[in-house]
Amino acid sequence: MNIFRLAGDMTHLMSVLVLLLKIHTIKSCAGISLKTQELYALVFATRYLDIFTDFISVYNTIMKLIFLGSSFSIVWYMRRHKLVRRSYDKEQDTFRHFFLVLPCLLLALVMNEKFTFKEVMWAFSLYLEAVAILPQLVLLQRTKNIDNLTGQYVFLLGAYRAFYIFNWIYRYFTEPHYVHWITWISGLVQTLLYADFFYYYFNSWKNNVKLHLPA
């Protein structure tokens, strides 16, 4: 474990807590894409298949349980909770996430570290995580006013993968044989997808104006 990876995991945890806080306290999911939340639940479900078979560390297991629990409970809140579901913007959140899942699955079948069920699922989860934010970014473009919690949520979600990139660089130089092209490329693509959001988020913060993305 290195400081970059710890910072990345904590930032990722913060993003989830910010979202749960928003949904649980103000009983609203306005501006949040259910499609993205469903994709994240699928990402964790396919990435943490080894949670009970390969023990890495207590930290690793606890964090996996937190990410699995939070992502599925957010989907449950947005689909089932009578108050929260009313604030879900079904008409605007129309990204066909099936068109993200299928290419990722096909790519995982072709590009993986080993052609085993677990490794294909692991590669699938990495490709899917890279694009899972797209429905949320599309929704942000459509809903003009972005409330602070939603902006913070997306910012933290993008920042966590940026920290991970520093972690991969650090591990590449400090650990022999640490080479994971699949992780590195999908992680880089994922971070780049946030680039324009970061640009507008930083500018809104610098000029102290409300965050809004150009149409």
């Binding site: 990876r5 990722h12 080993k114």
Partner: peptide, 10 residues
Amino acid sequence: SPGIILHDEL
């Protein structure tokens, strides 16, 4: 076991 690749990151 050598067969499996251990992914230690979240």
